[in-house]
Simulated scan of single mutants.
Amino acid sequence: MPPDSGVTAHGVRRSFGSVQAVADVDLVAAPGRVTALIGPNGSGKTTLLLMLAGLLAPDAGTISVAGFDPVTRTYQARARTGWMPDVFGTWDSLTAREVLTTVAAAYRISPDDAGRRAAELLDLVHLAELADEPAHVLSRGQKQRLGLARALVHDPEVLLLDEPASGLDPRSRVDLRVLLRRLAATGKTILVSSHVLTELDEMADDAVFISRGRTVAAEAIESAGESRRWRITALHHDVLVAHLAQAGVPYDVEPDGAEGVLVALSDDTEAAALLGDAVRAGVDVVSLAPAGGVLEQKYLALEEERR
């Protein structure tokens, strides 16, 4: 059997008639890490995930999931893949428990093991009290949690998650982050797409940015934050600006009359030094904080460069 090699895609393309949804994507998601797939609406994220899940065949390029090509080795790849689409779809008349045991049967899990696994997963996603309620009574957030449990039924090596936090309440979002980090720690490969970049900041190890169906950047989260914009405010805006100019610190004044000043800093140490210098110079600093998440800033910078 091939060794677990996570998820790779090279030169992947897919068109629907005259519309080229995925034009040229390269991607690597390593075992034991959470990889974020980031891009604007229409960038090809869902189409790419469908190809990785073996539900669409690429027009060109190569894909490997847990060491198998999902086109030529469909069963082997799918047996090792947990797929969670952005919209939960199932038979509404089935109970939450029956949804999981039915999916377990499709993976040839014995009825006794399926029942135990369903109970374990329903407890994991905090749906145990709704185990025997029909799926149609579940809220969108509850259906999302059931969708995650469904993806985990067969204990897959690879998890492909499309907008898993959509519709979740704040507590459930925290639980999701904790769960994904725990699963990654066991060696699973997790590829997650989301528009909520602040969520990804707290759970992802790596990021792949795509735009117009093409990979435009791929890097570790640590390196994505090497140069980060911070917002500094003071009681007297003009005094702050004068200090930064005298100290030779490049800055941008926030638009629309906002009182903050934006500066590019490499890390927390540089931020602390800037704050200390300002205070010693008599600047009444009110706040100094990142102007956004690491991924959000990287994404906005790439979009601006693309334009």
Score class of each variant (00 low, 15 high):
residue 269 T to W: 15
residue 220 A to S: 14
residue 28 V to C: 08
residue 237 H to E: 09
residue 234 A to F: 00
residue 34 V to I: 13
residue 193 S to C: 04
residue 148 L to Q: 15
residue 213 G to W: 06
residue 194 S to L: 06
residue 16 F to Y: 02
residue 275 L to E: 14
residue 132 D to V: 00
residue 78 R to M: 04
residue 226 E to P: 12
residue 127 L to I: 13
residue 163 E to P: 01
residue 298 K to C: 07
residue 53 A to V: 00
residue 67 G to A: 04
residue 13 R to S: 03
residue 157 E to I: 04
residue 253 V to R: 13
residue 20 Q to K: 11
residue 304 E to C: 07
residue 180 L to A: 02
residue 26 D to C: 03
residue 63 I to F: 01
residue 222 E to T: 13
residue 295 L to E: 03
residue 221 I to C: 02
residue 201 D to R: 09
residue 257 G to R: 10
residue 105 A to F: 10
residue 95 T to E: 13
residue 216 V to Y: 06
residue 274 L to I: 08
residue 285 V to S: 03
residue 60 A to I: 00
residue 5 S to V: 07
residue 272 A to V: 11
residue 222 E to G: 12
residue 232 I to P: 02
residue 223 S to R: 15
residue 153 V to F: 13
residue 219 E to A: 09
residue 73 R to V: 09
residue 246 Q to E: 13
residue 206 D to N: 07
residue 182 R to S: 02
residue 260 G to P: 05
residue 83 W to L: 09
residue 130 L to T: 10
residue 161 L to A: 05
residue 255 P to Q: 05
residue 65 V to S: 00
residue 300 L to I: 08
residue 84 M to W: 11
residue 199 E to Y: 04
residue 286 V to Y: 14
residue 182 R to C: 01
residue 97 R to N: 08
residue 10 H to W: 10
residue 193 S to Q: 09
residue 121 L to Y: 00
residue 218 A to P: 10
residue 88 F to M: 09
residue 187 G to F: 03
residue 95 T to Q: 13
residue 136 H to E: 10
residue 199 E to P: 12
residue 275 L to Y: 14
residue 96 A to S: 07
residue 254 E to M: 05
residue 36 A to Y: 04
residue 214 R to Y: 10
residue 143 K to Y: 14
residue 107 Y to R: 08
residue 56 L to W: 05
residue 192 V to K: 08
residue 277 D to H: 07
residue 240 L to Q: 00
residue 217 A to E: 10
residue 279 V to Q: 02
residue 129 E to P: 09
residue 104 A to T: 12
residue 234 A to D: 02
residue 123 D to E: 05
residue 202 E to T: 10
residue 133 E to R: 14
residue 52 L to T: 00
residue 204 A to N: 14
residue 242 A to C: 05
residue 241 V to C: 09
residue 24 D to K: 12
